[in-house]
Amino acid sequence: MATVIIPTPLRKFTNQTAKLEVSGGTVGEILEQITASYPDLKKHLIDPQGGLRSYVNIFAGDDDIRDLQKENTPVQSGTVLSIVPAIAGGI
């Protein structure tokens, strides 16, 4: 089982749950599991083409999965995955 940390702004879609214990062999499988369990989360994580939204980052431990194998990044038991919203803007 991996632990998935839900960021504060998305907790209203997980009944205010901050940590989920989810089984899956890759980051992609785990995303499928949590969006199946919490369908309102999906549009905030997944783009219409089925990929990870550009304003969402997933970290495995301290590493951005875009620097690893993206959604194919393997997940071990005990891995901590953090969903991290991109915080950006400007004038």
Binding site: T8, P9, H44, A86, G89, G90, I91
Partner: peptide, 12 residues
């Protein structure tokens, strides 16, 4: 701005 809006998160 539009840059602010497209990157904005709910709740915050």
């Amino acid at each position: 701005s539009e840059h602010d809006r497209v990157a904005a998160q709910p709740f915050f």
